[in-house]
Nucleic acid binder design. Structure first.
Lengths: 204, 204
DNA sequence: TGTACATCAGTGAACGCGCGTTCACTGATGTAC
DNA sequence: TGTACATCAGTGAACGCGCGTTCACTGATGTAC
């Protein structure tokens, strides 16, 4: 049953995609190799034709998760000036839709407390993803003329991620929604992105 | 080797204390019953004289963690007027010391992404802890005269927890410290607690 | 163009380890008489 | 006051399950000649 040249890499990609979602939904320890392979329509023995170990899969899966986030971010903001890019990203991120979509949401929110227990490899991939995201934010923030954009980006983003994370743990749905709205407004206000200012014009 | 009446409850408390710390350091799945018992100076077989199951221990351990947080909070703020209580708690919580002390720190930061994979029992205990903490914050915030204190408390707290969580994942120590300082100042400013205002007087 | 051989993604059984849980047993102390 | 018995926190071996990993094998397709 030898397959065409593209077949293997296609299968590989499919496995990583499934794992990337399962990772965010179930966490690294509850993600089971056999289950992932079954979901990909394969048996678990074939796993090692694609990955050196479960840990290697986890590292690829977390990279895939960050890439997905980056794709979303670019799709939403490409071509927009910093102020609109920031506002759009904040609205997208600090939202009930994100809260309710753990499997395809931000890996930082889904996995932050798992981090210290993972391999060096995994943590390095995670760290690279965080850095890249903060860098993008910092560039927009710099474009808006703020001083110390890296520092502000980190602080702003921590409020965004915290809002989504806490909105997931709060059992009162109404309070959870209000928390998100309140955090969103505050974060935008910190960057001078309140709705009135936004509708004014396009100048950064 | 029958022991005095108080002995069993003393042992029980000791086990829960050790587990409560291990839970925050290693997470629920990596916390091993035998290891906890060994740390308590016992063998793993005796575990079931104290707990129905590992899950029962986890529920007690998370309750213990929230109680510890509450004790710290009261120790720091008892007798202070709302504005000083808030400022003190924020300084205590959004700090490098908290970031570096995962085992004795806030369980919300240490365990938020583990939550959805845990038992109903565990999640209920967690939820109760979160609610109680938000309630305390809301009371202080109400005491400062803000409208919709529950909503504001949730939003404020999400920024606090997010700051500590992200400060733990950022590998650049300097940025991590700055992130905390920036978040702390912003959070206090939202509540009208900037240092100048604080040194003015004591009126709430 | 046809034949023999090599390749290698995928199969499925088996192994080994960690870990939660069970269980027969121990032995110091409390209680009944 | 002394003796027999009950209690029960704790011991340590064993069990069973989930799961990561290994391995001999398969068989369709590519390549050499």
């Amino acid at each position: 049953m030898r397959y065409s040249e593209a077949h293997k890499s296609e299968t590989h990609r499919r496995i990583v995609g499934i794992a990337s979602r399962a990772l965010r939904e179930k966490g690294p320890e509850r993600l089971a190799v056999a289950e992932i392979m079954r979901a990909a329509g394969l048996t678990h023995g074939g796993f090692y034709a694609h990955f050196r170990s479960k840990d290697a899969l986890l590292a690829e899966a977390i990279r895939g998760a960050f890439e997905g986030l980056k794709r979303n971010l670019h799709r939403l903001t490409d071509g927009l000036p910093p102020r609109h890019a920031l506002a759009t990203f904040i609205d997208f991120y600090v939202s009930a839709a994100h809260r309710d979509n753990r499997g395809q949401g931000c890996p930082i929110v889904a996995l932050n407390s798992d981090l210290p227990r993972q391999s060096k490899n995994f943590r390095a991939a995670f760290d690279a993803g965080v850095s890249q995201l903060l860098e993008t934010l910092a560039q927009w923030i710099a474009g808006r003329g703020f001083a110390e954009p890296e520092k502000l980006a980190a602080s702003i983003f921590s409020a965004m991620a915290g809002a989504v994370a806490l909105s997931r743990t709060v059992s009162d749905k109404g309070l959870s929604d209000e928390l998100l709205a309140s955090a969103r407004e505050n974060i935008k206000a910190r960057l001078g992105l309140n709705d009135a200012a936004l509708s004014e014009g396009v100048a950064p």
